[in-house]
Simulated assay, not measured.
Amino acid sequence: MNSKTTIVIVEDEKNIRTFMTSTLNAQGYKVITAPNANSGISLITSVCPDLILLDLGLPDMDGIDVIKEIRTWASIPIIVISARTQEQEKVLALDSGADDYITKPFGSSELLARIRTALRHSRRLLTDSLRSLRPYESDGLIVDFEKHLTLLHGVDVHLTQVEFKIVSLLAQNSGRVMTYDTIISNVWGPYADDNNRILRVNMANIRRKLEENPAEPHYIFTEIGIGYRMLEDNAE
């Protein structure tokens, strides 16, 4: 891993800070830590890191408010690290601008995998903003955004306009959880009814077309009560 990749950890529990710091240092990341929200925000503004690991239960400010404040001026990837397990807490964090959510306790492998996904997504967006958006490709599935084409093991899959919008949104954010509300807002508009039924119907149709076994999806996974996550893009 590039030693110039800088990660800021905002976490009030010293033992968790120490665990994450040692894990990330061993992988070549540069790590800077803060024990509370105010020092964390100050650190982030001065360092402008590549990624932020943020606890929600901070002593001086709720982590959701920290996410909202950072999102007013920066698009740095934010991974929430929290003991809060309720679905609505995860949805709120993601809808407020977090890129991912890890529930305590967690292992080093999960932490590193989520970090790699967030960094790849961030760098891909930066690269693709300088040229046309390259197709999504993973395990035989190709989504060509410019040509509005979906191929599964070389065979053209016909998707309706709405189905293609859903698949494209998930593909462009592959590896990340997209909440139901985010998908609905992006596909049907900000004033769309937030009833998930129309999204579930479309997703059922998409899975019938893309999945060998829709009951055990390989490409688009359900995060129960939260949203959907698409198999990570493996294209270089």
Rank of each mutant, 00 (worst) to 15 (best):
M1C: 13
M1R: 10
I7C: 12
V8I: 14
D12S: 13
R17S: 14
M20D: 13
S22H: 13
T23C: 12
L24I: 10
Q27S: 11
Q27Y: 11
K30H: 14
P35F: 05
P35S: 07
S39T: 15
G40Q: 08
I41L: 15
I44A: 00
C48I: 14
L53P: 06
L54D: 04
D55H: 12
L58S: 01
M61R: 15
M61N: 05
M61Q: 14
M61L: 15
D62S: 09
D65E: 11
E69T: 03
E69Q: 11
I70F: 02
R71I: 03
T72G: 02
S75D: 13
S75T: 06
I76L: 04
V80A: 00
R84S: 10
E87V: 14
Q88R: 09
E89G: 06
E89D: 15
K90R: 13
D100L: 02
F106A: 01
G107L: 06
G107P: 05
S109T: 15
R114M: 03
R116D: 07
H121G: 04
S122D: 04
R124G: 09
D128T: 03
L133A: 12
E137R: 15
G140S: 12
G140V: 05
L141C: 08
L141Q: 14
I142C: 15
V143P: 03
F145N: 03
E146F: 03
H148K: 15
L149V: 11
L149F: 08
L151V: 10
L152C: 11
G154D: 09
V157C: 08
T160E: 07
Q161A: 00
Q161I: 07
Q161N: 15
Q161P: 00
Q172H: 01
S174E: 01
G175F: 02
G175P: 04
R176N: 07
R176G: 00
M178R: 10
M178I: 10
T179I: 02
T182K: 04
T182M: 06
I183C: 04
I183A: 01
I184Y: 01
V187Y: 02
G189A: 00
Y191W: 04
D193R: 04
N196K: 13
N196M: 06
R197P: 00
I198H: 04
V201I: 14
V201H: 08
M203L: 09
A204T: 11
A204E: 11
I206Y: 01
R207K: 13
R207Q: 14
R208T: 11
K209H: 07
L210D: 12
E212P: 10
G225C: 05
G227R: 01
M230W: 05
D233K: 03
A235N: 06
E236D: 06
